[in-house]
Design a protein around this nucleic acid. Structure first.
Lengths: 170, 170
DNA sequence: TTGTCTGCAAACACTTTGCACTTTT
DNA sequence: AAAAGTGCAAAGTGTTTGCAGACAA
């Protein structure tokens, strides 16, 4: 998913007017952190990328990139964590490893996770949030966010599925 | 998930007629697996236990038990996996490690997770399931189950919270 | 220059596996 | 006796850390 540079739009509640790269630079500067070549490479690469990925995948992709723009495994992990802190990425855990997706300028959403092909389908539901908040209130709990994964089979996998075992992994 | 042989239950609030130990023995026998001392120790201990725990915790508790009833780490892990298969336990991943809770004779539910004190509060909502199924249907997806964790702060932690950083871990 | 960042290698936490021996059936 | 289970030690994952040299500010 590509983020437009210099756009100004609002989705749900989030107001976006900086490119991810700019937003990240701002975040770093605000904390006395430095805008290094590696960090820029990573934000840029991630921003020009499709939805979901994990650290190893990203690392692999960077490896195929011009020599100057590479980053080591530790740097990738460190930078992903910073991007999550900066609100650029959202992290979730699937099958034991962390999966990231864009979270900058995107409305909150949840996922349908196909246990057949590991596909993630996004959806969002205001009603869901309404219920979440109602339940939280009942328990005198202040909800800051949530994570919902609906497991099951997508239409493609529903056909030839009878032998294989479906595991509950999340 | 395997359905019990000879159990008697009704949906909504599940009715159970076998003890966890019996249920597990049945499950094992049905698969030509053996009812060993270790497996019995583990089911019994887990069944007499409170809600949420992880493998290391269980292992630790078993260590304090009469010599004859211990089980090694690999056996604990193997048995927990079997109990999940047998529908006795539910597994979820929090902060990178697997957490188990009872799933036999318990109605389906979700959790409020306090990022302040790591407390888990259970709740359940029929409305939620209704929405889940509606959304799944819209995407021609067959929902088999879901996992919802609402993150936030419990009432106890809401007081002295201003300095510390709350992390999104799930 | 000064202090942060990077990459390497090593350490990590949690979980799984290979294998010889023990136990259930 | 035959087959499956156990424990040990070792190997795996995915991720994090200590540290010396490299580099932004």
């Amino acid at each position: 998913m590509t983020m437009a540079v210099g756009t100004d739009f609002s989705l749900g509640t989030v107001q976006v007017s900086l490119s991810p790269r700019e937003r990240f630079a701002e975040f770093l500067q605000a904390r006395g952190k430095r805008v290094t070549r590696q960090r820029q490479t990573i934000v840029d690469h991630v921003s020009s990328r499709h939805e979901h990925f994990d650290a190893e995948q990203l690392l692999e992709e960077l490896r195929r990139t011009p020599a100057g723009s590479r980053a080591s495994r530790p740097t990738v992990y460190r930078t992903l964590a910073e991007m999550v802190e900066a609100g650029l990425l959202r992290k979730m855990v699937l099958d034991g490893r962390a999966v990231y997706e864009h979270d900058y300028g995107y409305p909150q959403h949840d996922h349908l996770y196909c246990t057949g092909c590991q596909k993630l389908i996004e959806f969002s539901s205001d009603e869901l949030v309404r219920i979440r908040d109602a339940v939280a209130a009942q328990h005198r709990f202040r909800a800051r966010g949530h994570r919902l994964i609906v497991m099951g089979l997508c239409i493609d996998c529903r056909s030839a599925r009878s032998t294989s075992r479906h595991q509950d992994r999340v």
